[in-house]
Design a binder for these strands. Structure first.
Length: 318
RNA sequence: GCCGAGUUAGCUCAGUUGGUAGAGCAUGCGACUGAAAAUCGCAGGGUCCACGGUCCGAGUCCGUGACUCGGCA
């Protein structure tokens, strides 16, 4: 690696767009490794419902940051960032450019915008206390408390967004420092190429509906049942994972299976829309590729080789 | 054929004693310095089945027709 900057290939796109497949094929062609930027692939035991790539789908390509923890010990963005940066460095030092692939926009941005993340562990007890306090005095009042101790942070947080108010207060109470003071970011410190996979919405929705039916056939209910019987249902609910909370409701008799599946479809569609806020069609830093294009892989490979060749970096075998 | 109920947004439906229409879902857009598959905000969209009548004014009242769903033959 001649270039002193760390180099990285990034693959983004909404759920069910074919990121995993493209990343594996790119990795094989370029003889490199994959780093997952998917916040739900971290957890052991969440396989079917998260559409985690299987061993055979990985086709022998080394994948990092998959099954690296359990729901009892949720990873934060900070932990992801620390590990991802370390892996990028390691793989670069082997003369390879890793492929960062995932649908968690915030995580991708934390890498490309070099967010500096304070490593403050979450405190579930404190969070619950703050949430209960908000129930008593109201979201707005809790936000007003934040405004007193950290007006800068309050200014950037919608008072209706309780979750962010709670997080800001949590950080302040745990560190004694202002939340707003712990924030900083910089320009992209990496030499990175971002590939995006795009689909017309209606087609993507059809792919998602099909995939959800497949998940049910592959035994999503049994997978969730296992987690529930291990007493993990409350943890799963607090993390909030599409496909799991709905099936828990089914197992608890709050929904029929049909209602649960319908709700999974709905929630996945909403997810696709909010996901698109992180990967926009007019983002000049993303090279968008048509997901339906049979030549997707060839085009992605050409783009990648050309991009790095312009900087004197030759990828793959001649 | 007769009797009843209905026809309003893409879907399911509200709509007061007549004053040119609302909700939920869906759809689209957006925020987000870190719990993010989370949390939250905004918007577009209607020949009110058709035609005629009454009225200053009809989604609303009257008539005729079309279609849908029940019940009876």
């Amino acid at each position: 690696m001649e270039n002193k900057k760390q180099a990285l290939i990034i693959v983004v796109g909404p759920t069910a767009s074919g990121k995993t497949d493209l990343a594996v094929k790119l990795a094989k062609a370029l003889e490199t490794e994959v780093i997952s930027a998917d916040s739900r692939y971290f957890y052991k035991g969440l396989n079917i419902g998260t559409a985690k790539p299987t061993k055979s789908e990985m086709q022998g390509v080394t994948h990092h940051l998959i099954d690296c923890t359990t729901v009892d010990n949720p990873w934060s963005l900070g932990e992801f960032r620390t590990h991802a940066l370390k892996l990028i460095k390691e793989i670069n030092s082997k003369g390879k450019i890793p492929i960062l692939v995932g649908g968690t926009g915030q995580y991708i941005r934390a890498i490309t915008k070099n967010w500096n993340v304070p490593t403050i562990e979450s405190d579930e007890g404190l969070r619950i206390t703050l949430e209960n306090w908000a129930k008593l005095i109201g979201k707005k009042e809790l936000w007003n408390k934040l405004k007193i101790v950290d007006p800068e942070a309050a200014k950037k947080i919608d008072f209706r967004n309780l979750r962010r108010t709670v997080r800001a207060l949590e950080v302040i109470l745990k560190t004694g420092k202002r939340f707003s003071g712990l924030r900083n970011f910089s320009d992209n410190p990496l030499n990175s190429l971002t590939l995006g996979i795009s689909w017309p919405r209606d087609l993507l929705y059809k792919r998602v509906d099909f995939r959800i039916d497949q998940m049910i056939k592959q035994g999503l209910v049994a997978e969730v049942n296992d987690l529930v019987s291990q007493g993990r249902d409350e943890l799963l609910r607090r993390i909030g994972i599409i496909g799991y909370t709905e099936i828990i409701d089914y197992l608890e008799g709050k929904l029929t299976l049909e209602q649960a599946v319908k709700l999974i479809r709905k929630n996945t569609r909403v997810f696709i829309r909010t996901q698109s806020n992180w990967f926009k069609a007019d983002d000049p830093n993303i090279y968008w590729l048509d997901g339906k294009d049979p030549a997707l892989l060839v085009k992605a490979l050409d783009l990648t080789k050309n991009y790095f060749a312009n900087q004197g970096i030759i990828l793959g075998m001649p």
